[in-house]
Amino acid sequence: MARITMREAISQAMWEEMERDPNVFILGEEVGVWGGSYAVTKGFYDHFGGERVRDTPIAEAAIIGAAIGSAMTGLRPIAELMTINFAFSAMDHIVNEAAKLHYMFGGQFVLPLVIRAVGGGGRQLGATHSQTPDAIFAHFPGLKVISPGTPADAKGLLKASIRSNDPVLFIENATLYQVRGEVPDGDYIVPIGKSTIQRPGKDVTIVTYSKGLEISMKAAEELAKDGIEAEIVDLRSLRPLDIGPVIESFKKTNRAVIVEEGWKSYGVGAEVSSRIYEQAFDYVDAPVVRVAQKEVPLPYNRALEQSALPQPADVVAAVREVL
């Protein structure tokens, strides 16, 4: 067990998989010579060479399209989008090709493809570079959408994603790159599509993932001071969505708060709360409350930006509301 950062965990996962399987390669903007715009692929170019760590033009449709095509031939590309905000320039290839080719041709094409993309706000990057559009991608059958909240999950899930024969969108959060955590040694794999309890509790269920996990953990510490024990369910994977542990926890606590960094409308919270009502209506003791980003394009000004993003205090207030 080593205590490493999320950045190191992601980097290790790719390094180990590239050492293990010569068909795994990386392509993206500044992934090679530069070392990755977030330094996740630092050292890869020198070790693996330019054929396996491929710098691309600034052309997202070509990056994702070429990744898809190469995956169809049996390679296992890891395509890095410099930020998830640039995924919109490759939207057709993610939605109309990656998510559909296996189905639409009767199973003939197999796409063992990973798209890594970093998102999230809180870094004063302005409205176009600060989005958390995870729910949009989770809407499409055919894609797997994963977003880890701990270094261990980041490593284990990324390794599972690289070995998956389905297209995976792996969403990271830039403000979590420096977060440290224990990561098991060796070939550590976390299966895709399994929610997990990150903190046991009995009074309220907090459902979250990615950056929301950090926020919720802080809130839970605050609540514990008042003797309120929150159980935190980390979805980890938005599609497939493993709702079982959420329902199980809710049947115990009868109260739920859903925390996500993205906008509330049509978001992850909308999906999860609906499933709670559908599958555990008889256990509802209070309306399910959603904590999410306020409905504005994120502003540059630090105070304005922070006021739009969900904070631990918002989660604490939401929990008090449902108790």
């Binding site: 449709a61 898809i68 095509g69 169809m72 031939t73 390679l75 590309p77 090709e97 094409f109």
Partner: peptide
């Protein structure tokens, strides 16, 4: 390798197919 219905979208895929052959 298809049969693609979004105009032009299969051109990047073609680059990827060719990359697959070159890589191997």
């Amino acid at each position: 390798w298809g049969g693609h219905a979004i105009v032009g979208a299969h051109l990047p895929l073609a680059a990827g197919l060719a990359l697959g052959d070159k890589y191997a």
